[in-house]
């Protein structure tokens, strides 16, 4: 018979395998997005989350039913991790009615309110005030729900970040602020836009609890998120979580990244790829990995087929949802 400890370990391993499956799905989805964008099939401007899958999955898996998130311009990973089917996300990127925003939004306006996704946001720092508002509503209604904002290091320089964290702490609302610190604001490296090395110091301005976590380690993200969510849910105030992570792709699809040494990405891909790190840790057999990879690739490919067969919105409907 398995001991309690062994049972715990096997449950944890199973969970990590699930995390890996989901991170891999996001990776293959994003690679497909890059491919179809370069083929000229996707309109607009796209930002993929390659390299940051562990934050999306680690945080979203720690959420409970009823919790909500707000995403950023780099939203595909968060949206899939929050439960929207890749078909609906891809259809949205193709601008189809079957998309999660019915083709009206596109990559930077992925909404899925039913699944607790209050939306991607093209405006840097734009999602934070909405999350404070949602959290305030949960508090006023006495609901045990938490609202989570994702944003990048660049957003911490924006006024809405400051106003949101100040009010969240003042009103002690159940919110968690997850900073995905990939050390680039588009093409601006942190040393040119951040006056401090330790981002958690920003929380001192509000008297807020902060924690730092390795954003490439999905288990660490998951544990930190659980802790932060618990504090928020228990009414002990919001938490500022800084996840150090790496952007293994350009800012946008097609970004030549002339501002970044080529070796940097090559090195990071070797040493800091969250999927490879987890795969190595789980010591997966090659056939298990290949099986997992085939499944993720199939779902990503299916999403493209689904999207291509979708319906184009009618031009006369363009103004339909503008005003109530």
């Amino acid at each position: 018979m398995a001991t309690l400890e062994e049972k715990g370990q096997s449950a944890s391993t199973e969970r990590l395998k699930e995390f890996l499956r989901e991170m891999l799905l996001i990776r293959r989805f994003e690679e497909k997005v890059e491919e179809r964008f370069r083929a000229g099939e996707l309109p607009g401007f796209l930002h993929v989350a390659i390299g940051q899958e562990a934050v999306a999955v680690g945080v979203c898996r720690a959420l409970e039913e009823g919790d909500v998130i707000a995403s950023t311009h780099r939203a595909h990973g968060h949206t899939i991790a929050k439960g929207t089917h890749p078909n609906e996300v891809m259809a949205e990127l193709y601008g189809k009615v079957e998309g999660t925003s019915h083709g009206y939004g596109g990559s930077m306006h992925l909404y899925d309110v039913e699944r607790g996704n209050l939306g991607a946001n093209a405006v840097v720092g734009g999602g934070l005030p909405g999350i404070v508002g949602a959290a305030l509503a949960f508090k006023l209604r006495g609901e045990p729900r938490v609202a989570v904002a994702f944003f990048g290091d660049g957003a911490t320089n924006i006024g809405t970040f400051h106003e949101s964290l100040n009010l969240a702490q003042l009103w002690m609302v159940p919110a968690v602020f997850v900073c995905e610190n990939n050390r680039y604001a588009e093409s601006t490296p942190a040393k040119q836009h951040l006056p401090i090395e330790d981002m958690t110091k920003r929380a001192e301005a509000y008297g807020m609890t902060s924690m730092a976590v390795d954003g490439q380690d999905v288990e660490a993200v998951y544990e930190a998120a659980r802790k932060a969510l618990k504090q928020a849910r228990d009414g002990r105030g919001p938490v500022f979580v800084v996840a150090d992570c790496v952007r293994l792709s350009g800012h946008y699809v097609g970004d030549p990244q002339v501002y970044r040494p080529k070796e940097e990405i090559l090195e990071l891909r070797k040493s800091r790829d969250p999927i490879e790190l987890l795969r190595a840790r789980l010591e997966l057999a090659d056939e298990d990995w290949e099986e997992m990879d085939r499944e993720a690739t199939r779902i990503a490919e299916d999403s493209v087929e689904f999207a291509k067969k979708g319906t184009d919105p009618r031009p006369e409907d363009a103004l339909k949802n503008v005003y109530a």
Binding site: P195, I196, E197, A203, Y206
Partner: peptide, 17 residues
């Protein structure tokens, strides 16, 4: 009712000043 920060001077820490 403005902030929960105990000291406004603590705002400086977030800017490294």
């Amino acid at each position: 009712a403005q902030t929960r920060a105990e000291f406004l001077a603590d705002k400086a820490a977030g800017y490294g000043m």
